[in-house]
Amino acid sequence: MALRSINLPGIGTKYELVTDKDDTIAIFFLKNGNIQMYTLPHDEHTPCVAELTTAEARRLGTIMTGAIMEADKESVEIAFSALSDLRISIHTYVIGKAMAGRCIEDLQIRAKTGVTIIAVSRGDKNIVNPPPSFMFQEGDAVVAIGETDQLKTFERECMVG
């Protein structure tokens, strides 16, 4: 994959990407705020073009990062492309023996891993924003939010613990 970008005076910024299969995609951020996207298959001479507004481009972008719905059933990653590509993952876990009977405060989840528990589902009851004194029980489903790396740490440090 070869990516190159260039600033064209009077027009805007051009990004050109040649894929491994030799197809070319060129994206132009125009001065008027719109975006033109060209795709050129390797065996063709005339490209196809679509002109997008900023909002449309952002939507397309999120679809292409696969962020809106990461197929993995227990986690969702949300990307905010306007905020310098901020990515947040939301993951669900089922509490095992290691964490049962302890509360959020003495596990020091946020201090140790950076992850925040934002909801707990116990039986048919949901607790949103559980307090630090909240005591986990085996079989609780928890929703944790953080960066992918932080969630990995959480899995390693707390879940197995």
Binding site: I6, L8, P9, G10, I11, K14, T24, A26, F28, Q36, Y38, L40, P47, V49, E51
Partner: peptide, 12 residues
């Protein structure tokens, strides 16, 4: 919609 042409850069 000719921005992708290689000539476009030359023209600019």
């Amino acid at each position: 919609k000719k921005l992708m042409m290689r000539e476009s850069e030359t023209i600019v």
